Computed example of a mutant assay.
Amino acid sequence: MRADDILSIGQVAARTGLAVSAIRYYEDMGLITPMRAPGGNRRFRRADIRRLSFVRIAQGFGFTLPRIAELLADLPEARTPTAKDWKDISEGFKQELDQKIATLTKLRDDLDGCIGCGCLSLERCALYNRDDTAAQKGDGPRYLMGDTSD
């Protein structure tokens, strides 16, 4: 490992755009595992920049930190992850993103018909939940999540 492959927390913050406190928090969450210098200071591998960038991107897509930690757990700690390592975790990530995109598209399309529709009839409303029957299908906004009223 070259000397310039080891970075201080300040250098990682500058490269990722994250606050030092956020990097420490992500360490506490187990998303990254820095080494310690003899004086106790955190030292990061250059590969941690990619991990932290992944965290920022995944959070932007609405993934929770525990879910991001699950995804990152499949990456090796003892070496820099390879393109294949990243590809392997991206497959599950893509499937979840596709599901989120489908849900958001349905939400957008259904709400577009509701906002200002003026139907004034709950009987014709696609989102109407008479007697809370949607609760039998599970929690959350069932009809917006793809369930039907039949």
Rank of each mutant, 00 (worst) to 15 (best):
residue 87 K to D: 15
residue 38 P to K: 03
residue 81 P to I: 02
residue 80 T to V: 15
residue 98 D to S: 14
residue 122 L to C: 10
residue 48 D to G: 03
residue 45 R to M: 04
residue 30 G to I: 04
residue 74 D to P: 05
residue 91 E to Y: 14
residue 111 L to G: 13
residue 91 E to W: 07
residue 43 R to T: 01
residue 118 G to R: 09
residue 18 L to C: 06
residue 118 G to D: 09
residue 59 Q to A: 09
residue 6 I to Q: 02
residue 132 D to V: 10
residue 9 I to T: 07
residue 131 D to F: 09
residue 20 V to H: 04
residue 28 D to W: 01
residue 112 D to S: 10
residue 23 I to C: 04
residue 53 S to T: 11
residue 128 Y to R: 11
residue 91 E to M: 13
residue 84 K to R: 11
residue 140 G to K: 05
residue 94 K to Q: 13
residue 74 D to V: 08
residue 144 L to V: 08
residue 79 R to F: 07
residue 137 K to M: 15
residue 60 G to R: 09
residue 31 L to W: 00
residue 56 R to W: 03
residue 89 I to A: 07
residue 12 V to K: 04
residue 1 M to T: 06
residue 111 L to E: 04
residue 21 S to H: 07
residue 73 A to C: 06
residue 104 L to N: 14
residue 82 T to Y: 04
residue 82 T to D: 05
residue 19 A to H: 11
residue 136 Q to F: 14
residue 26 Y to K: 00
residue 51 R to F: 00
residue 69 A to M: 01
residue 55 V to C: 02
residue 139 D to E: 13
residue 67 R to Y: 05
residue 140 G to C: 07
residue 115 I to V: 14
residue 141 P to F: 12
residue 115 I to L: 15
residue 49 I to C: 03
residue 35 M to R: 05
residue 66 P to L: 13
residue 71 L to K: 02
residue 122 L to H: 12
residue 19 A to L: 09
residue 28 D to S: 09
residue 53 S to Y: 01
residue 122 L to Q: 10
residue 8 S to I: 01
residue 94 K to E: 09
residue 88 D to W: 10
residue 103 T to I: 14
residue 121 S to C: 07
residue 112 D to C: 07
residue 37 A to D: 04
residue 79 R to M: 10
residue 3 A to G: 10
residue 37 A to H: 08
residue 135 A to T: 13
residue 127 L to H: 08
residue 20 V to E: 06
residue 75 L to S: 01
residue 85 D to G: 10
residue 28 D to C: 03
residue 22 A to M: 06
residue 135 A to M: 12
residue 136 Q to Y: 09
residue 16 T to K: 02
residue 6 I to M: 05
residue 77 E to K: 11
residue 81 P to T: 03
residue 11 Q to I: 05
residue 10 G to T: 09
residue 99 Q to A: 14
residue 59 Q to E: 15
residue 100 K to E: 10
residue 136 Q to D: 14
residue 22 A to L: 05
residue 134 A to C: 14
residue 24 R to D: 01
residue 116 G to E: 06
residue 84 K to T: 15
residue 87 K to W: 05
residue 68 I to Y: 00
residue 98 D to H: 07
residue 4 D to F: 07
residue 105 T to N: 08
residue 44 F to S: 00
residue 138 G to Q: 09
residue 113 G to T: 14
residue 128 Y to S: 13
residue 59 Q to L: 15
residue 57 I to Q: 11
residue 142 R to H: 08
residue 126 A to Q: 11
residue 10 G to P: 06
residue 93 F to C: 04
residue 138 G to W: 11
residue 46 R to P: 01
residue 39 G to V: 06
residue 145 M to D: 11
residue 61 F to V: 05
residue 80 T to A: 13
residue 118 G to L: 15
residue 58 A to Q: 01
residue 7 L to G: 02
residue 111 L to K: 06
residue 51 R to V: 01
residue 104 L to K: 10
residue 116 G to D: 09
residue 17 G to S: 03
residue 46 R to H: 07
residue 36 R to L: 04
residue 115 I to Q: 13
